[in-house]
Amino acid sequence: MTLSPAPPHPKDEAVRVSGLSRRFGHLLAVDSVDFEIGRTSIFGLLGPNGSGKSTIIRMLCGLLRPTSGEARVLGIDVARDPESVRRRIGYMSQRFSLYDELTGLENLTFFGMAYGLKGGALARRRGEVIEIVGMKGYETRRAGALSGGWKQRLALACAILHEPEILFLDEPTAGIDPVARRSLWNLLFEMAAKGTTLLVTTHYMDEAERCDHLAYLYLSKLLAWGSPTELKAREDVTPKGMKRVEIRHKDVVGLLRLLQGSEGVREATIFGENVHALVDDGVDLALPEGAEARTVTPSLEDVFVTLTRRASGV
């Protein structure tokens, strides 16, 4: 290992991960993952539970050392110099990890001090973040007494006090109601618009649609990464000679059974009131009465379902 300064890096790169792996005993939690995140984007890290999302985030924040490979954040090798990285990033963990017996304001003061903010600067910044997350009037309540959505806002406020260049959010919307989820996302968009790079893990597809770039993890491996448009256009998702068809019918379960037994149907999945099917070109589907079919571009869920099926060999 040499101690020479890090090589110069392109200015627009916030995170670069190459060959990143982490092993816990016999379990390979992250298996040689590569991706890059440009500055000021919302990067979504998707994947089922246990696919390695949190482990990657924790390595990027310097909480865990990689077993092999490298994680660079803002051009700095995190394993080598976690201290310099910590000043410039924010982290919001999966579970609420603030002090329940302190009020929102006291939590903010504490984390501000932990980041070296003092006196007037601390007070000003505290006011700003309360404004940003919109929790004015709630800041004097004990954190433990806040509901899930407000807790998340407070956690976000604590994570952005020191104006981080990158914000890591590990399932920020897990366990909060849809309205709170939507308003949290609006906050994230505003922050991205103002120049913060965000890395968000999620398993909600609607949240994935909101990201500029996505990486999809499955069984510790990175299956795909790119913009949603790029992912939907992937040839291994909709191979040549096939098309995605959306079929609307009142009995979706019956329709699914019918399609699964039909010639030329490669895949069929229920999406609410519709069935999405991957069908060979030129096949004439024998559809029941009242069913309407139309060709569509694949949704992200189609993309991930297809990629997952392929990866697990189904």
């Binding site: 310097g62 909480l63 910590r86 000043r87 924010g90 982290y91 609420f96 990890s97």
Partner: peptide, 13 residues
């Protein structure tokens, strides 16, 4: 136990 230690660990403290 509460997970706040991890939050502290990502600060420059």
């Amino acid at each position: 136990e509460r997970g706040t230690l991890e939050q502290l660990m990502v600060t420059p403290v």
